[in-house]
Design a protein around this nucleic acid. Sequence first.
DNA 1: TTGTATGCGTTATCAG
DNA 2: CTGATAACGCATACAA
Lengths: 328, 328
Amino acid sequence: MNEKTAPTMADVAREAGVALGTVSKVVNGQAVGKEYKDKVEEAIARLGYQYNSSGRALRTDKTNTVALIIPNTVNPYFGTLVHHINMALEKRDYKMLLCFTEYDQNREMEYIQMVRQNRVDGIIALTYNPDLTIPEGIPFVTIDRFFSVSVPCVAADNFGGGWMAAYKLRDLGCKKVAFLRIGSALTNEPSKRKEGFVAACVEMGLPFEVMALEDGTPFSEFERFLAEHMYDGKFAFDGLFAGTDMLAWQIIQVLKKMGQRVPQDVQVIGFDGIRMFGDLEYIVSTIVQPVQEIAEACVSTVLSKHLSTVPSLICLPVSYAYGGTTRE
Amino acid sequence: MNEKTAPTMADVAREAGVALGTVSKVVNGQAVGKEYKDKVEEAIARLGYQYNSSGRALRTDKTNTVALIIPNTVNPYFGTLVHHINMALEKRDYKMLLCFTEYDQNREMEYIQMVRQNRVDGIIALTYNPDLTIPEGIPFVTIDRFFSVSVPCVAADNFGGGWMAAYKLRDLGCKKVAFLRIGSALTNEPSKRKEGFVAACVEMGLPFEVMALEDGTPFSEFERFLAEHMYDGKFAFDGLFAGTDMLAWQIIQVLKKMGQRVPQDVQVIGFDGIRMFGDLEYIVSTIVQPVQEIAEACVSTVLSKHLSTVPSLICLPVSYAYGGTTRE
DNA sequence: TTGTATGCGTTATCAG
DNA sequence: CTGATAACGCATACAA
């Protein structure tokens, strides 16, 4: 009869000689007479039955899907984040609906449509769009970006990380340091990296400078900044803290071109904890984000039954890792 | 009445004062009287209606979803692949169901269940599992892995890439070269990299050796191989071709530890085309895979109406890119 | 052309 | 504890 269409509960019921409702109960693990249960399970095995998630979703108004809105998966930090979030979701029998913004606000708008069409049970977003409209009635969690007290934000301890970087550089012998950053102007969580760094420098009485560029500023501005701080072939700083590992990496390329040795002449610490190929050495000395914990926190928060009782900021501890661009 | 539940077509129909079927037609872009169409679109806007994809899927038996089975998204090559595949799917209004195998065969089995539950319209798989059971009746496309003539395989021109690497090394002055590889024993597409390399070496009369390790062999085997080919501080090869960029990178670390300078003493070419942070410099000189074209080919193939008329092997051209580990 | 009615696969209610 | 039946939101065949 049904050659190409997958078997349904009705097929199973017929095959097992029981009622449709009984099959449903067995599938959903509800109490059912042992004899019936056996018959049903046998029929399921015989037919190779798999429940239809569309039917279930339609009926229960629950898709077991969470949308993840993130710039891309090309940047290795995002790649690992996506990976751990998907694993955390899968553990709970949830699926992930991946939405790449590519830093494009129009794309973000389209996605909130798509997300509503798919009736996702929750949204996890890592976005820099200052005026993203959050769809009502869907549990929403952000990463590294504070919206309001009603929207939980999961983030690494950025302030503590900046602090840690400053102390680390001092402990490693640096006498004059600088913080370099490129990023959106709005005060999001990552901007606390600077604040922590500055606070620690002030506390230690360590001379420092700050070079913060707006998003979109060409990288050559950094080159100019670095070049301007060269005096007779000697660089004004012996320690740098970059807002991200990527920036640290780029800065180091410039420093080398300028004849500076890393870490002998100038030590550099980044932020994120990127490893080569995801699991080899750290590409630079860095403050590493607890990606797996962040992923786990996002998922458990967005799926928590009572989102209102959840803290509005979940701050996870960071750690320092040696990556060849500091002494040690 | 309906406070928290999303508006349905019936709501729109009532609001617009038309019949349910008319709304459906408007939503699906079918011909409808202009007057009606306007009324419906107005009502849709007023209510903020978005179609329910579960309902549609249930009715049409089409989920507009394609499963992507891939080891992870932590390795940057996989990360870019996932990215481009999702973009190619999105362009066609398809969603992606991401399945990370983590190189675990049990996980793969679970996924084929999940994939059937979700009634995906197609599957794209990058897997090394030799006896993966392909679910019947679902369009299936593999990447870099030949199953049978009935399963289309999309791959870079691995043979040509190996060939190209050999010629490149010769042109750059190498006198004795070697191919290094670690990977699954089964003859998949990537193993053609060796064949192309060997064929070119033979053709050119260029002395060469091959060091191919089975999956799971500890990396230290390579170190041993390299160490064994050191004669009085001089390395036996002046050119190496590694099966992947990752292996090339690891090999280079070892070479440096052994006091060899790259590229002055020994030049190294990898395979894949990994860039730092996805879009900066290539991390090694490499044969780059056309990732975007591969993604596009996978998607258009898996969604093609007549899968039977599709070629069973789609081979995409590679190119050479300088990445600092060769002269030039 | 527009409206109506049916069924997709599932869960839940309710009567046996 | 089981079995029949309605309803979820949508697309479509068919009737008007």
